[in-house]
Write a protein that binds this DNA or RNA. Structure first.
Lengths: 233, 233
DNA sequence: GCAAAAGTGTTTGGATTACACCCATGC
DNA sequence: GCATGGGTGTAATCCAAACACTTTTGC
């Protein structure tokens, strides 16, 4: 006689949410997009944007929805980070949260506070104040995951303008890896990464303008078919 | 006037579970411990051991409990994998699951089916049949995470006997990285990893017995304090 | 002695590092 | 011309791959 182990309605009393850490790059720094909450709990606290998951919604869908509601951006690749389920983490009940992160080009959209936030701001990852809930912890461990991704998958280019200089790429690399590197050596290091050089230069700089590059995703895909090739930054 | 966004009891209608993928190593293969379910849903299907999380229980606690109930092992480090929340994944309601994994020494315990399983078995990672729920998917993505951990943190030693031969270490490495490697070169590759050599040899082999080694975790900890040192397998 | 695996040394080519130097632009 | 960063070449060094060879055990 088969038995159902789950027959206690007491188990179906929890909620879950998705929190989205949105990373961007400007002023040589990696930043996260934070909102100032305009609701309880943690009213007026800075926080990672997040929302409860709808009953019929899958997790990646929820993450995309939150990103869209916040930035108007669609079609951005989302990456799952970790889940956090401390029973005390939410004052209103048992809510576990799944953290997702997105990498976006800061210039691609205009930030504006939505109805459920009274302010919104990019904050450099090393200048983040005390946040609502366990959000400091969530950001910290998600940033660790970001760094691993950046080193092993071609996602840096999601944070850079479509056309970027090699120096921008180097600055992003140096910030994420917390190192400094010789310019010539950096260029040798990335020579396995397929970049398209354009006949176009940086504008409005008071020194020799740098050449602009873009990531050659077509070439990357064909390279990836070779099992000996592995992206490494 | 502060408003609570969460005031709909309809949100607190989901449950969550923790699934534990327990990895071990024997016969030169990485294996996972699976149970044959003795309950609905998916009665008589092979599955990853898992359970609902108790209302007052944190996620890592739940993972440790499940490991203990299944193997009797305590004090094993658990690692969080990914979460899975497809609304259709559980036939009895909305259940999202957080996958955890543990690496254990297969010889350290005797497996025996518990009350909620009719059978239990180690299965090589590339010989796993169709499982209950979305468990094939869960195992696959957790195995990918395992491979990354193995390469970057000294967790291989959790899967090997306390004293092991260099060839065992190499076989585990080769299985996980799906490569073959020259013996001499492998030994050069691992010379940064702190190992203690013992005056003890393999027994009952019909060839020259190999020396036994153990991981020198004391030395590893002091090495880790040097920011230039990074474990790499 | 033979089979089988343990264990070590040498050579070579490619990648990483340190460092030096030249180039283009604005003011 | 000079300040500022863009861009490149060279030599020394380290590291990984290929391969050959010696050693120790059981039978």
């Amino acid at each position: 006689m088969p038995m159902y182990r789950i027959n206690f309605s007491e188990f179906f009393t929890s909620a879950f949410s998705v929190d989205c850490i949105i990373f961007g790059f400007s002023d040589s720094k990696i930043k996260a997009l934070l909102i100032k909450r305009a609701m309880e709990p943690f009213n007026h606290f800075w926080a990672v944007p997040g929302d409860l998951v709808y009953p019929k919604e899958d997790l990646p869908e929820a993450a995309e929805r939150i990103l869209y509601e916040l930035t108007g951006l669609k079609g951005i690749q989302m990456h799952q980070s970790q889940s956090f389920g401390n029973p005390e983490r939410h004052p209103q009940g048992r809510v576990i949260t799944v953290a997702y992160f997105a990498l976006i080009k800061i210039d691609d959209f205009k930030i504006e506070a939505s109805s459920w936030a009274e302010d919104i701001k990019w904050m450099a990852i090393d200048e983040i104040p005390a946040l609502a809930f366990d959000h400091n912890h969530i950001i910290k461990s998600t940033y660790e995951m970001l760094k691993i991704k950046l080193a092993n998958e071609p996602v840096v280019f999601d944070m850079l303008p479509k056309r970027f200089t090699l120096n921008q790429l180097q600055q992003l690399y140096e910030y994420a890896s917390a190192t400094e590197m010789d310019k010539a050596n950096f260029r040798k290091k990335i020579k396995n990464i397929p970049l398209k050089a354009h006949n176009e230069k940086q504008q409005n700089v008071k020194h020799r303008p740098a050449k602009l590059f873009s990531f050659d995703s077509k070439k990357y895909i064909s390279l990836s078919k070779d099992l000996n090739y592995r992206f490494k930054l």
